Amino acid sequence: MAALEAAAADVLADKGYEATTMTEIAARAGASIGSLYQYFPTKEDIAAHLHAAYLDQLDAALSDVDPAPIAGLIDAIFEALGSFLKAHPALATLVNRRDIDPARKLASRTALEERLGKMLAASGALPAPQIAGLAVLLLQQIKIAVMLTASGRPEDIAAIRHLKTMLHRELDALAGEAGRR
């Protein structure tokens, strides 16, 4: 099963979701198509399985980020994200699928927002009433960074630096406001 998952991730990263076929996944794994269908009856099934596993792994990677001090939090999150995307390039393809179960999508989004909210709160530098909104904003910026990283274009990589700068400025401003209160 691990070989099938690895092959699916490779094909998805190389070809994109629409162009990926079950036949190609089986061939890349060196397995029969019947073996693939035994574990994953459809392309949607294996994509959903990988997507869920990657989101759980990303959540675990983010849990290792030290939330304090606030000044380094954004850099640490984006560093963890960059490392994760290098190890799992298929994530960019998987998050853009249109056939994601809405309930699963909401559950994953909520879990990641909660993780980010806890990290922001743990810094102790931000106003508590704004943390939930900041977590939503941060997750959306992470999603943008995933797409920009996947393209590999120099302009897109530069855009990630701008994203980080904007986030730094917003968090610094909010932390400064909270400190003056």
Score class of each variant (00 low, 15 high):
R181K: 14
A128F: 01
P154F: 06
A7K: 02
Q130A: 10
I157V: 09
A122M: 08
D75N: 15
G16Y: 02
E170N: 11
K15W: 00
T21H: 03
A61M: 11
E24I: 03
H51I: 05
S123I: 13
L171T: 09
K105P: 02
D10M: 05
L50G: 03
F78A: 07
R181M: 08
Y39N: 15
L126H: 09
G152L: 05
I144M: 13
A90S: 13
Q38K: 15
G133K: 10
E177F: 09
P41A: 08
A90I: 08
I100H: 11
G30T: 12
K43E: 06
G124F: 06
Q140E: 13
E155C: 03
M1Q: 09
I142E: 08
A47M: 10
Y37S: 14
L139I: 03
G34S: 15
G152Q: 13
A150M: 10
A121D: 07
P127Y: 02
E79W: 01
D66M: 14
A19I: 00
L163V: 14
D172W: 07
L139G: 05
P69Y: 11
I157Q: 12
P154W: 01
D14F: 00
P41W: 04
L134E: 11
E113W: 00
A29K: 10
P89K: 04
V11T: 03
H51N: 08
D56C: 11
L85N: 03
L58V: 08
D64K: 12
A107E: 14
S83R: 15
A47G: 08
V95D: 07
